[in-house]
Design a protein around this nucleic acid. Structure first.
Length: 332
DNA sequence: TGTATTTGACCTAA
DNA sequence: TTAGGTCAAATACA
């Protein structure tokens, strides 16, 4: 077909456009509060990146390449078409985006977590080190409680595709099933409070990145399977906020075992318990619950709950056997 | 005024 | 055809 670009020329044009959009994003983002525009640019950029990836796969071997068009002959990237064509392109782009999302949905890694919060209604507020934005809620057939849909706050600004679904269990209203999908690609900083004397940028940044990596590795469950992994709702129960704090303190100071649970139905795998999977006794007051949810679930609020704590858990490995009944006595 | 949440509509996979 | 997942306008909130 006359005038048709060969694949490698198209690839170069796409790469050029992707770079330009990236620069534009940086400018718009630097302007301050340009959330929607940045989001749109990010979508365009993602689309271009997909196209580049596809073109690269389809690109023939260099030896077979026909003579390339000089870059200066390339048509302008900007679309000077009519508003009508822009509108139809927008519709096409949206359809493409939706299809891509569906494709990605299938391939994203997926794993499950189970959180018990006595008193109810607080699990949505449980922090796991990342900031989430709710984008939907849906009643699920056969489930008494609706399912909440959350995505990473940095989806639009950083293209992070991580999502999670939160659903209250029918059996036990204090139990929430959380399904995570996709890894965080946003290198999201855990919003740790400034610790005294720890204001060196280089150190704190690497620390944050490390924290993000630790969380990102989803070490709570075998991540390699990319399948839903769940464990029975056997939870550690503490009589009070202080008990949890004491346990965490004891662990952190080396005089106690880390928090682990052993699945009741499996004797081959033991999963370390994330701080967000601590159960609090029903007698705990609402304020205590809030306090303990913050203290135990967030790496943010407790100086004792930093990456070391989590990393240490990870280092024990999935085969670490911890029997709560032995450790906590008659409570189990 | 900007940002987050709610909620009905829409789309896709099964 | 239907259930689950997502979008986006409307609304709430700080």
């Amino acid at each position: 077909m006359e005038g048709a670009l060969d694949l490698s020329s198209l690839l170069r044009l796409l790469s050029q456009a992707e770079r330009q959009v990236g620069q534009l994003m940086a400018q718009v983002h630097a302007d301050g509060n340009q959330y929607r525009r940045t989001a749109l640019l990010q979508q365009i950029r993602s689309c271009l990146q997909d196209a580049i990836a596809t073109a690269k796969i389809m690109e023939p071997e260099p030896s077979n390449l026909p003579p390339q068009l000089p870059l200066s002959d390339s048509p302008p990237i900007s679309n000077s078409g009519s508003p009508r064509s822009e509108c139809s392109e927008r519709v096409l782009f949206k359809e493409h985006e939706r299809r891509e999302m569906c494709k990605k949905r299938k391939t994203l890694s997926k794993w499950a977590s189970r959180v018990c919060v006595a008193g109810g209604g607080l699990a949505e507020g449980l922090e796991d080190g990342y900031s989430w934005r709710k984008y939907g809620q849906k009643g699920i057939l056969g489930a008494r409680h609706p399912r909440g849909y959350y995505r990473c706050t940095h989806r639009n600004t950083a293209g992070c595709l991580a999502t999670k679904q939160v659903q209250r269990s029918d059996d036990d209203s204090c139990v929430f099933d959380i399904t995570y999908r996709g890894d965080h690609t946003c290198q999201q900083k855990l919003q740790a409070p400034p610790t005294p004397g720890a204001d060196e940028p280089a150190t704190s940044q690497s620390h944050d990145q490390h924290q993000a990596q630790v969380l990102n590795s989803s070490f709570f469950f075998p991540s390699s399977s990319a399948q839903i992994t769940s464990f029975p709702p056997q939870n550690l129960v503490f009589s009070s906020t202080a008990a949890v704090e004491d346990h965490l303190h004891n662990y952190y100071t080396g005089s106690s075992t880390p928090l682990f649970i052993s699945p009741a139905t499996s004797d081959s795998n033991y999963f370390p318990v994330a701080p967000s999977q601590v159960a609090v006794h029903p007698n705990a007051s609402e304020s205590e619950l809030t306090e303990i949810v913050s203290a135990a679930a967030s790496t943010t609020n407790s100086p004792r709950m930093d990456a070391n704590f989590m990393l240490d858990q990870a280092e024990f490995g999935p085969l670490f056997n911890f029997d709560p009944s032995n450790f906590f006595g008659s409570s189990f």
